[in-house]
Simulated scan of single mutants.
Amino acid sequence: MKNFSKYSVLALASVLFFSCGNSQKGQAETAKTGTEAVATDSLSKAAAQLGKVEFAESAFDFGQVKEGAEVKHTFVLKNTGDAPVILSKVTASCGCTQPEFSKSPILPGGTSDIHVTFKSEGQVGKQQKIITIQSNASNSMTTVQLKGEVLAK
């Protein structure tokens, strides 16, 4: 019986020792999973509260113009998101195309204009100019196009 008691106590001590380690490990994993869930929820809420840029038209076809003519067009964008949108940069794919835009915040449901001027001098043939819009919106980089054909003088 003495031998049995020694072995029983040893076995019981081993079980307690190993189960305590597993218990703490389980608690650490639960805490880690809980923290990750909170972080994921916060990111989801932040993403849901971003602005979103949508254009009334993604491309404008100016048809045919004579070389030397200036083509002007206004692209209207709307903030369909839940937070203000600020345009940080608007660029064109060619120096012959000049965009102008407001840096004022566009409130949810609000609109803003991007005025584009294309100078056709030296640009004979089919044209496709890409205007890239960068902002703090959920779709942080969007594009619109100006296209048409420039006829030689």
Rank of each mutant, 00 (worst) to 15 (best):
H73P: 13
T33D: 09
V38N: 12
E57M: 09
S93F: 01
T33P: 01
H115F: 06
D61C: 07
D113A: 12
V71F: 10
H73S: 12
C96Y: 05
F118Q: 05
A39N: 15
A92N: 11
K119F: 04
H115P: 00
T97M: 05
S102A: 03
Q98W: 08
T117N: 05
E54V: 14
S44Q: 09
T117S: 11
L43P: 02
Q49E: 10
H115T: 10
K66Y: 06
V116N: 12
E67Y: 03
D41S: 15
P108K: 08
A37M: 15
E54W: 05
V65L: 03
T117W: 07
G34F: 12
A69C: 05
K89P: 00
G68P: 06
Q49N: 15
A69F: 04
F75W: 15
G51N: 08
A83W: 03
S88R: 08
I86M: 02
T35I: 13
K89Q: 10
E100Q: 12
V65I: 05
I86K: 06
E54I: 09
E70A: 10
F62G: 10
D113E: 14
V38S: 11
D113G: 01
A48Y: 03
T80R: 15
G81M: 13
G95Q: 06
E67P: 01
H73D: 15
V71S: 11
D82M: 13
L87T: 08
I106S: 00
A69I: 00
T35R: 13
K52W: 12
A46F: 02
T35Y: 14
